[in-house]
């Protein structure tokens, strides 16, 4: 790639840093939403379930890009709320992927054996104690592989912010393309960067999964190289 000067490389690397930040912040917001909404969807009060279920359906039906446009352009005009582009992007991504994540949380919590809750009742745990001490510790390791899929989808989703002018990797790519007039090398490099980031995320989640399983006395078969499970795939209208 002799066409790309050191200055342009620096531009791309700065873009990587922005992408990483976007991913981390959106993932944090998304995780909070996923747990909040996911647990609320199994709440014993129907009104709580209804509100959470509506959130899930609305945000699952929403295109992340459209939501981003809406937050960027409609919120300031319609409501007078002007957000820094970076945070507007985090909001759009976190709310959308949080909705997908809530399905993961709900499913994993529902998959904990019924006898575990019954044992919790028999020992007079409060519902909150049952959740904290018994259900979540067991459900958590099951959530990690689907969360990993979502995280990779989220990483890919961050590229959308370049459309709004946030200087992430994809934005850097268009600048470099304009500067060099070369498309193939730039976009190949960019795609490779995303691929490497996704691989790093996946590897990290594998480690997390192994630890989580060891923490509850389950042994995880050691694999020579991590491979993310794909039996359940994220962005689709996931349902059971």
């Amino acid at each position: 790639m002799s066409e790309i000067s050191p200055g342009l490389w620096e531009l791309l690397l700065k873009g990587v840093w922005i992408t990483v930040q976007l991913t981390v912040y959106s993932a944090a917001l998304g995780a909070a939403v996923a747990f909040g909404v996911g647990l609320a969807r199994a709440h014993r009060l129907w009104i709580v379930r209804f509100v959470a279920g509506t959130y899930f359906e609305v945000f699952r039906g929403t295109s992340a890009l459209i939501l981003m446009f809406w937050i960027f352009f409609v919120l300031p005009l319609g409501f007078g709320w002007q957000l820094v582009p970076m945070w507007a992007a985090v909001l759009a991504l976190g709310l959308t992927y949080g909705a997908y994540g809530s399905e993961v949380v709900r499913g994993a919590v529902a998959a904990v054996a019924k006898g575990q809750r019954e044992a919790g009742i028999a020992l007079s745990f409060t519902p909150a104690q049952q959740l904290r001490k018994i259900v979540l510790p067991q459900a958590w390791p099951e959530m990690i592989p689907p969360f990993n899929n979502l995280l990779v989808e989220l990483l890919k989703g961050t590229a959308l912010v370049s459309i709004m002018g946030v200087a992430d990797i994809a934005f850097g790519a268009s600048l470099v393309r304009n500067a060099t007039g070369q498309s193939a090398p730039v976009y190949t490099v960019i795609l490779l960067m995303y691929f490497v980031l996704a691989a790093v995320l996946t590897r990290g989640m594998r480690v997390l999964e192994r630890r989580a399983k060891a923490g509850i006395g389950q042994k995880q078969p050691e694999r020579t190289f991590p491979r993310r499970s794909r039996e359940r795939v994220p962005v689709g209208g996931e349902s059971r």
Partner: peptide, 22 residues
């Protein structure tokens, strides 16, 4: 594996700008 793990948006740019070069 590569296509699945990289953003569609960038792939669209790739196709749009690179294919004509080819």
């Amino acid at each position: 594996e590569f296509v699945r793990n990289t953003p569609l948006l960038v792939q669209l740019f790739f196709l749009y700008y690179v294919l004509p070069e080819w």
